[in-house]
């Protein structure tokens, strides 16, 4: 990476030269970061501006629609309730999944009893549960939250079970020797020990939760992001529909960014451990 500029300068390097080099590598970095997205946006702009197709509005139309559509009472009426249901469902799935997972991970007989049934539930494509739960819970918030929980639960649960089972035997003996029992054991040994798998499960669960949030509103609802976007499509409000897709995309991106932050905080030690082990080999 630095090879392109480093060869020219020999020995002592002037401060200005170093500054220039830093600036240049920063610029190169920025170009890599923004080059392709900028090119794609420009392409979209040009193609859409020349297009007469009703379905492909120009980018400024979409952006105008975006501001008009979403910076309004829709935030309170549609976006925030959607996000609230997403948060409730996702957190519910996380709590239940980790709790049950720890229980099953430490009880091999119960695990053997339930494993095939749980594998079946994991394999059911979660969207088919929407009609089922609608039957029981109507089309209100409860149904949607339960749909999200019942779809996002399984990756968390099964990954937690796997993580708890994989906790090192020597580590667990050490914890016993030093009197770590009960909640201290859970907090200091079991949860951190299983955290790499738990986080992997939580990551899968996040994308499933977003999918289920959207389609539970698309399938049966009178409000929410998914509902609104489909309404725009049905009423041929094309720029508004595009702005909804854009919003959903931004939402997915933002949540995955948040998750990456969370992950680097929780699993910083794990990355270091992996790197040191790879370095040894």
């Amino acid at each position: 990476m630095s090879g392109m500029t480093g060869t020219k300068t020999k020995g002592a390097e002037s401060r200005a030269g170093r500054g220039l080099r830093l600036l240049r590598s920063g610029a190169v970095h920025l170009a890599y970061l923004l080059g392709l997205p900028a090119a794609l946006l420009a392409l979209w702009w040009v193609l859409a501006a020349r297009s007469t197709n009703f379905y492909y509005p120009t980018l400024d139309e979409i952006l105008a629609a975006f501001a008009e559509t979403w910076f309004s009472e829709r935030i309170v009426d549609d976006v925030l309730p959607s996000l609230g249901r997403l948060a409730a469902g996702y957190l519910g799935a996380a709590v239940i999944g980790i709790g049950l997972g720890v229980l099953l991970g430490t009880r091999p007989r119960i695990r053997a009893l339930l494993e095939p049934v749980l594998e079946f539930f994991r394999a059911v494509p979660p969207p088919v549960l929407i009609p089922v739960l609608m039957l029981v819970a109507g089309i209100g918030d409860t149904m949607k939250i339960v749909v999200i929980i019942s779809g996002a639960l399984w990756p968390v649960l099964l990954n937690t079970v796997e993580g708890v089972r994989a906790i090192d035997e020597v580590l667990s003996d050490t914890a016993r020797c030093y009197g770590l029992t009960g909640t201290a054991r859970l907090r200091r040994l079991v949860l951190p020990g299983a955290s790499p798998q738990i986080v992997a499960g939580l990551r899968q669960a996040l994308s499933i939760s977003i999918i289920l949030m959207v389609i539970s509103e698309m399938f049966a609802s009178s409000s929410g992001l998914g509902f609104t976007v489909v309404q725009f499509q049905r009423s041929f409000a094309i720029p508004e529909m595009w702005s909804g897709i854009l919003l959903l995309g931004l939402l997915g991106f933002a949540l995955s960014l948040l998750f990456a932050l969370f992950e680097s905080r929780v699993l910083g030690w794990y990355r270091g451990l992996r790197q040191s082990q790879r370095g040894e080999k």
Binding site: Y55, S207, I210, I211, V214, I215, M218, G226, V229, V230, F232, Q233, M241, W242, G244, I245, L248, G249, L251, G252, F253, L255, S256
Partner: peptide, 10 residues
């Protein structure tokens, strides 16, 4: 991370 279901209307 864009949820593919967002593309349904399109």
């Amino acid at each position: 991370p864009i949820p593919s279901v967002a593309l349904i209307p399109l």
